[in-house]
Nucleic acid binder design. Structure first.
Lengths: 190, 190
DNA sequence: TTAAAATACTAATAAAATTAGTTTTGCGGA
DNA sequence: TCCGCAAAACTAATTTTATTAGTATTTTAA
């Protein structure tokens, strides 16, 4: 049987697969079965397992990026950043293994990935243009934002937090503190 | 040949191994060769590969915890926190794959691990006692601290930052902003 | 319509974790 | 000192992987 199978479809199925089995339990055998082909036939579309994992990273990151951009539409400043952070955490919670794939990229120098990452970075920079930061400070500020939101997501996914207190509230609290300090910082500098 | 082989020694060798090959490329064959025994002999000391990985997580986390505690000796408040953050990032940079093992725990409910994690958490809470925070806010504050420092380390390790600007400086900048906001927050509350 | 490219297949290989069963070694009690 | 037992090593075998080679079939394009 011959189906109009594309690499994108394979990656999409792989994304579903890893949410069932975990990222590091992704096997070509199981993926092939899901696609109703034999294992070696996969090699007509992908180079190897590493290549597939790379594809997963790109797929996940571009999906996340679009959601983040959508969630900030019509918002600015703190409003936008709270929305972005919330969307980010929600994505990680909804697709924990795909999120893992985004972080554990087999080849971080992949050009496709680079392009998507750039899109996300430009977006975050744009949002932070709402704040009177120097060009250099804006780089720090974006890194801080990403650290907070990724660190929070990662710890949450890997059971790093205990259950005693509300985690959603923690995120807002942390972001509030960071943004407050961020504003304070620049007035002190001038 | 019979050597006084212990589980701890095996874990220690595995820790060296993963720094050479990467966490997910840890194989029992290579580890056995390094210990001058045959692969199945490993099963006299460990239950399986997952068990070994769990051991690596415990080993890494307790090592990290001790270093953090050491680095904060004789310091308090911001001084202590900057030292802790610096030591944390340095550890992650020096043992990137062991750090990976700390985060990607096979079994997060493992009692041994829980005990070590508790030790780290208690330590961080102790440091934050230097700030006039409510019990509840201190939970948020600790989570924020961990998010920042882990998120920064993780992104740095996985090439998440571009090279244009100094990353050490970014960490200080971010932490400064967070701590400033943290202090501001509580004065606003009263 | 025919040549070529894409896409499927079967068969085979190498490396991995794991299990079963066996031998060796060293220690503690008689 | 010796004897038994448990720990710790081994060999052999199994199952599951990824991956390659080679072949057939289907679609596409000239």
């Amino acid at each position: 049987m011959r189906q109009g199978l594309t690499k994108q479809q394979i990656i999409k199925q792989a994304a579903q697969q890893i949410e069932e089995t975990g990222l590091h339990n992704l096997t070509l055998a199981a993926l092939a079965q899901r696609l109703h082909i034999k294992t070696p036939s996969l090699y007509n579309h992908i180079n190897n397992l590493t290549d597939l994992r790379n594809g997963l990273s790109c797929y996940g990151l571009s999906m996340l990026t679009e959601k983040l951009i959508q969630s900030a539409l019509g918002k600015s400043q703190d409003d936008a950043l709270f929305a972005i952070a919330g969307t980010y955490i929600a994505f990680a919670k909804e697709h924990p293994n795909l999120y893992d794939a985004i972080i554990h990229v087999p080849d971080p120098t992949d050009p496709d990935l680079h392009q998507i990452a750039e899109r996300l970075l430009n977006f975050l920079f744009k949002i932070l243009e709402g704040y009177p930061l120097s060009e250099e400070d804006r780089v720090h500020a974006v890194r801080g934002l990403r650290s907070i939101v990724h660190g929070f997501a990662s710890l949450q996914l890997h059971q790093g937090f205990n259950m005693k207190n509300d985690q959603d509230e923690s995120l807002k609290w942390i972001l509030s503190a960071y943004l407050a300090g961020l504003k304070l910082n620049l007035s002190n500098k001038s």
